[in-house]
C-alpha cells in the first residue's frame, strides 16, 4: 500500500503543489499584481488583479487560426511544451524550503531546463512562417545568449560558496546549506551576484525594457504575431508562470534559510500541512516582492532597449557583477 500512496503523493506534487495548480495560479496572480502596480505607478487605475486570468479564459474561447505558411503540429504543440516544462521546473525548485523532487536535478540542469520554454517560443514563432516572427525569433535568441553568460556565472558563484571543496550543485543541497549557514545573500560577496540575478530575471521573462523580442510597437509581438486563441493564451500564461518560476529560483538560491523558525507541529496523515501552507504563502510573498523590485519598477521607469544594447549591457555590466562575486568567493571572502 505504501507504493500506492507514494504514487498518489507524487501525482499531487506534480499536479497540485508545487506543480500545476500552484504554479499556474501563483503566476497569474503575480502577473495581475505586476499590471496593477505599474498602473498605479503611472497614475492609472489599472485592471483588477485577476485580469490575466480573465484574459486567459477569454482567449481560450476564441477560435485558433493556423496560418497557411505554418507547420501545424509544431505551431500548435510549442506553447504546451513550454508550459509543461515550466511546470516541471517548478516541481524541481524548493518552495519555502520544501523540496518535492529537487534532489533529481542540479543547477546546470535547471539552467538548461529554463531554455526549453524559450526554445518553445522560438520554434513556435518560427513555425508560424511570418517574417515578423522571424525577426522576433532572432531577437529572442540573442537575448538568450545575452543572459545565459551572467546566469551561469551566478550559478557557479553560488555553487562555489555552498560546495566548498566538494562538488555539490543540487538545489536541495543549497537549501540545506542555507538552513545551516544562513541565506546566501547574507554573505557580502554574493550581493553583486544577487543583483546580477535580479537583472537576469526580466530578460528571461521578457518584460520591459528587455522585451525586444516581443516589441508590440515595432514587430507586433514578434514570435506571437500569428498566434490566436488558446495557443496565444498559453504563451501569455507561460510568461506569467515564468515570472513565478524565476522569482522562486531567486529565493531558493539566495533566500533559502529564512524559514527556519516555522514549525507549528500540526500534522495530517504525517505531513506538516500547516507548515507547508505558511511556507508557501511566505514564498509567494517573497516572489511578489522580487517581482515588484526587478520587473514592475524597472518596467515602469524604462523604455525598451535596442537588441545590440541589450546584448552589450548583459555581457558587460551584468556579467561584471556576477564575475565580481565569483572571484570574491573563489579567493575565499
Amino acid at each position: 500500500m505504501t507504493g500506492f500512496f507514494d504514487i498518489i503523493e507524487n501525482i499531487i506534487k506534480a499536479l497540485v503543489f508545487p506543480g500545476l495548480l500552484f504554479a499556474t495560479i501563483g503566476g497569474l496572480i503575480l502577473a495581475g499584481f505586476d499590471r496593477k502596480v505599474i498602473a498605479r505607478m503611472q497614475r492609472r487605475v489599472g485592471p483588477p488583479i485577476l485580469q490575466p486570468t480573465y484574459d486567459f479564459f477569454k482567449l481560450a474561447g476564441k477560435e485558433t487560426i493556423v496560418p497557411h505558411a505554418a507547420n501545424k503540429p509544431v505551431y500548435l504543440a510549442a506553447p504546451f511544451v513550454g508550459y509543461v516544462s515550466l511546470i516541471v521546473m517548478m516541481t524541481l525548485i524548493p518552495i519555502g524550503g520544501y523540496s518535492a523532487f529537487s534532489g533529481k536535478a542540479d543547477l546546470i540542469v535547471i539552467l538548461y531546463l529554463l531554455t526549453i520554454p524559450a526554445v518553445a517560443l522560438i520554434v513556435g514563432g518560427s513555425a508560424s512562417g511570418s517574417p515578423y516572427a522571424g525577426i522576433g525569433v532572432s531577437r529572442e535568441m540573442v537575448t538568450m545568449m545575452a543572459y545565459e553568460l551572467p546566469l551561469i556565472i551566478v550559478f557557479l558563484a553560488v555553487a562555489r560558496l555552498v560546495g566548498g571543496s566538494s562538488l555539490e550543485f543540487s538545489l536541495q543541497y543549497i537549501n540545506a546549506w542555507q538552513v545551516a549557514n544562513g541565506p546566501v545573500i547574507s554573505h557580502l560577496a554574493m550581493i553583486p551576484a544577487a543583483l546580477a540575478m535580479l537583472l537576469v530575471i526580466p530578460a528571461e521573462v521578457g518584460t520591459q525594457p528587455f522585451d525586444v523580442a516581443e516589441a508590440e510597437t515595432e514587430i507586433c509581438e514578434g514570435p506571437l504575431v500569428e498566434y490566436s486563441g488558446l495557443p496565444l493564451g498559453m504563451f501569455k500564461l507561460n510568461t506569467a508562470v515564468k515570472m513565478f518560476v524565476m522569482t522562486s529560483l531567486f529565493s531558493a538560491l539566495f533566500l533559502g534559510g529564512i524559514y527556519n523558525g516555522i514549525h507549528t507541529g500540526v500534522t495530517l496523515w504525517g505531513i506538516h500541512f500547516l507548515d507547508i501552507i505558511i511556507r508557501a504563502i511566505i514564498h509567494f510573498a517573497i516572489s511578489l516582492v522580487v517581482t515588484l523590485i526587478c520587473m514592475t519598477t524597472v518596467h515602469a521607469v524604462t523604455a525598451r532597449l535596442k537588441i545590440e544594447h541589450l546584448f552589450k549591457f548583459y555581457w558587460t555590466v551584468v556579467t561584471g557583477l556576477a564575475l565580481i562575486s565569483l572571484i570574491l568567493v573563489w579567493i575565499g571572502l
Binding site: 505558411a69 507547420n71 509544431v74 546546470i108 539552467l111 531554455t115 526554445v119 522560438i122 520554434v123 518560427s126 513555425a127 508560424s128 512562417g129 517574417p131 522571424g134 525569433v137 532572432s138 535568441m141 540573442v142 538568450m144 545568449m145 545565459e148 553568460l149 551561469i152 556565472i153 557557479l156
Partner: peptide, 27 residues
C-alpha cells in the same frame, strides 16, 4: 573553461535556430 563551455552551448543553439528558421520554417 566551464563558463566558456556553457556559452558555446548557447551559441550552438543559436546557430541551429538559424538553420531551423532559414531552411525548415518560414515560407
Amino acid at each position: 573553461v566551464t563558463v566558456t563551455a556553457v556559452v558555446v552551448s548557447v551559441m550552438t543553439l543559436a546557430s541551429f535556430i538559424k538553420v531551423t528558421q532559414a531552411v525548415f520554417f518560414g515560407q
